[in-house]
Design a protein around this nucleic acid. Structure first.
Lengths: 111, 111
DNA sequence: ATCGTTCCTGTAGGAACTCTACAGGAATCT
DNA sequence: AGATTCCTGTAGAGTTCCTACAGGAACGAT
């Protein structure tokens, strides 16, 4: 078990998180979810039921490409990497997020 | 017209924004959306089609109560205010948001 | 007094995303 | 051989949001 800190609700930022993770390094699905968990210090937990459909969406949109490969552990895995359009999309969505999170912050600070 | 700065996508934070706004002062629906727009400096735009259902959800959940009243402009309007449970909910959701936004921030800053 | 506009409340239908739960293959460890 | 870890998916449902539509009442202008 070890419950990585039960979190849910990826309020529409799953794509952003995946893209960012892939921009660091091409990776397979399972690895992406691990990475997101590490980088968020255990706060964010991505279910496979959300992850794989999201990856399919992104690939269908042309933001990522994938190919079968082998992990260091000698397991078959599908590796995803960012396309140029994916990089642009990431930049744009990250900017969107900052703006949006900032606006929410202003409201929460209001007195 | 005057397009208040077309924004959409209230990624699951609409309830939070409404609760926070009501914690500042009881208000009617239309006023709430104005307030959110002002406080977010024009970045956030709440559609009526999202707002009223959200208010109904919150009332049904017992987080807000409402009653008919009259505005300064002599218009009939339904005024909403926070209940004790709503205040608790706000505190909790605001805390959730900060944690979540922080985690996303960490990921976006990763190199 | 009528017309257009602002203020204000809703509903209907659909699209998008996430969650829970399920299913399974292949490699490694015991 | 059996259990566990690694890894990829699918199905179905629930929630939330958006677009579009509908309408009443007060106000301002002509």
């Amino acid at each position: 078990m070890a419950e990585p800190a039960g979190s849910d609700v990826l309020r529409g930022t799953l794509d952003l998180l995946i893209l960012k993770t892939l921009s660091l390094e091409p990776m397979h699905g399972w690895g992406i979810s691990q990475r997101i968990q590490e980088l968020s210090r255990g706060l964010l937990d991505v279910n496979q039921g959300s992850l794989y459909p999201a990856l399919q969406r992104l690939e269908h949109r042309g933001w990522v490409t994938s190919r079968w490969g082998t992990t260091e552990n000698n397991r078959k895995a599908r590796y995803y990497s960012l396309t140029a359009r994916g990089q642009q999309g990431l930049t744009h969505e990250a900017e969107d997020w900052r703006r949006y999170a900032g606006a929410v912050g202003w409201i929460l600070e209001a007195t």
